[in-house]
Amino acid sequence: MPMYSEKVMDHFTNPRNIGEVDDADGVGEVGNPVCGDMMKFTIKVKDNRIEDIKYFTFGCGAAIAVSSMVSEMARGKTLEEALKITNKQVAEELGGLPGNKMHCSNLGADALHKAIHDYMEKQGAKK
């Protein structure tokens, strides 16, 4: 087992915001079982802010902790702010990740951004 920070262990043990929001405004899915990690984020957007955010994650300890942290970081933020959340920031907020687990944090921000872009595309299509 890799050496995880206390924060990673906290989010792994008590992951926040698990689930799927009802009538999601945006959905972002990344990864696949071959690489070992898969994340699906769903968001609810109100007045250009992420009002609610939930996720399902298939993956290792780091992947679960990253999903949980991303959901906390993005909640309440404007879409522009949320799009600025980087993989690096997520890893930093978690007190660092073991070197070979950095790709898990990449998935987290990617899935979030994908959900936001999905929402934006749907909005564009409505206009």
Binding site: M1, F12, G36, D37, C60
Partner: peptide
């Protein structure tokens, strides 16, 4: 439906020690 390292870590927290063939548990 679940990944081995997460299983291993959760079981470890319960004092049950196992190993897994998942990619995340391998260096």
């Amino acid at each position: 439906f679940v990944e081995g390292e997460a299983l291993l870590m959760r079981l470890n927290m319960e004092g049950i020690y196992v190993s897994s063939g998942s990619s995340c548990t391998s260096q």
